Computed example of a mutant assay.
Amino acid sequence: MTVVLTVNPGSHSLKLHLIDTETEEVLASQTGDAVPDAKSAASVADELIGDTTVSAVGHRLVHGGPRLRSPTVVDDDARKQAQAAADLAPQHVPVTLEILNGMRDRLPNVPHVLCPDTAFHSDLPEIATTYPIPASWRERFGIRRYGFHGLSYAWATSRAASLLNRPASSVSLLLAHLGGGCSVCAVRDGSSVDTSMGFTPLEGVPMSTRSGSVDPGMLLWLLERMPLDEVRDELYHRSGLLGMSSSSGDTRDLVRASAQGDTNAQLALDVFTRRVSQALAAMAVSLPRVDALVFTGEIGWDQPEVRQAICQSLGRLGVPASLPSGNPTTDSVLSSRFAPVPVLAVQPREELQIARETAMATRGRVNTSREG
């Protein structure tokens, strides 16, 4: 049995899993709600690992930058390249690298692998990566669209193909990863060909507390009137669903509040679902056909009201306007088998994708260790 420890730090959470890569069984897991750091991660890891022999450690890296384009065994150069991308995802990359350093001290005799969320989109066509800005900016600063949530999309693509009884390399899918961060993606023949997030995880559809795309002229106007740090903080932490509702960034709260007559909560949900529908419709132009619409992420998996509202606006694509109420208990086709475009829900399992990629990256070079 080969056991991989997966480390998935968010801006306000930390998820660790021990996974048997031969069976993809989760042997143990631990979640922390506090803002993660190296010390808390080491404490959680000590409790989780115990006497288990760990063969490798996989770390989710939100932004791989221009050089880390695939799962990469950590060495000094990989660490340097990840650090270079830190200012492109400032809420995520620095804490990942801090935890990586602590884990390498805790488990120095096993390979550590950085699994970039951007890797799934590394072969995006030039038409999808190019911003309409001066060429001098693109060349000087390396500005391009990267795409994110790649670990989630890779897992959801393989699971959707299985549900459709098709090889992953043959499917054309529209996918929506909806959670604390949100994006949509077009997958053609199993590969990403377009996605809504770009240079940073701030672009695209509205999110729990992040704005998504807004008028750049408005930002220039605000920057003449507000400090840069304040604008950045508001866009990342007090916008999106929270900013529109003024009460919560959690769709569960907003659905309950809307049912009780909270018009701001309903407006937030309406704007959110409309923008996601529009983004999915835009993604469809990159596909020769749509074999299925796939929902994943915490909201996509367990918020039927959001799924329903998004689908109601996509009838022109063949997406059924009505879905069953309630949530599935396993990855499922939600729509009727007669629907022109099936609607699927896939449970987000980033930890299993990290374990897969870590096993692939370390194949032939794995040692085992319990030592810290």
Rank of each mutant, 00 (worst) to 15 (best):
V3C: 09
V4L: 09
V4S: 07
L5I: 06
L5A: 05
L5F: 05
T6N: 02
G10F: 01
S13I: 03
K15S: 04
H17L: 09
H17C: 13
D20L: 05
T21V: 15
E22C: 11
L27F: 05
A28E: 09
A34H: 14
D37K: 02
K39M: 12
K39Y: 10
K39P: 00
V44G: 10
A45G: 11
I49A: 09
D51F: 11
T52G: 05
S55Q: 10
A56Q: 10
V62S: 02
G64A: 02
G64E: 06
R69N: 11
V73T: 04
V73W: 00
V74I: 13
K80E: 14
K80H: 13
Q83I: 09
A84R: 06
A84H: 04
A85I: 03
A89W: 01
P94L: 04
L100C: 05
G102L: 05
M103C: 01
P108R: 12
H112E: 12
V113Q: 01
L114T: 07
D117L: 03
T118Y: 02
A119Q: 08
F120K: 08
L124R: 02
P125A: 08
P125H: 09
I127S: 15
T130C: 09
T130P: 09
Y131P: 00
Y131K: 04
R138I: 09
R140V: 08
S152M: 08
S158K: 15
L164S: 10
R166C: 04
A168F: 11
S169Y: 10
L173N: 01
H177A: 01
S183R: 07
C185I: 07
A186D: 04
D189A: 14
S191C: 13
S191T: 15
S192D: 01
T195G: 03
M197D: 03
M197P: 03
G198V: 05
G198N: 07
T200Y: 00
S208W: 04
T209D: 02
V214K: 06
P216C: 04
G217Y: 11
L220I: 13
L223F: 09
R225K: 13
P227E: 14
L228G: 11
V231W: 00
Y236H: 15
R238S: 12
S239C: 10
S246W: 13
S247G: 13
D250A: 10
T251R: 10
L254Y: 06
R256W: 12
T263A: 14
N264Y: 12
D270T: 12
V271K: 10
V271G: 06
F272M: 06
F272G: 06
T273D: 07
S277M: 05
M283F: 11
A284P: 01
A284C: 01
S286K: 10
P288T: 15
P288D: 15
T296Y: 03
G297S: 09
W301N: 08
R307H: 01
Q312H: 13
G318D: 04
V319Y: 06
P320N: 00
S325M: 12
S325Q: 15
G326F: 11
L334Y: 00
S335D: 02
R337L: 14
A339T: 08
P340K: 07
V341G: 02
V341L: 00
E351M: 00
L352W: 08
L352D: 07
A355V: 07
A359I: 09
T362M: 06
G364I: 05
R365E: 11
T368G: 10
S369R: 03
S369A: 07
R370E: 12
E371A: 14
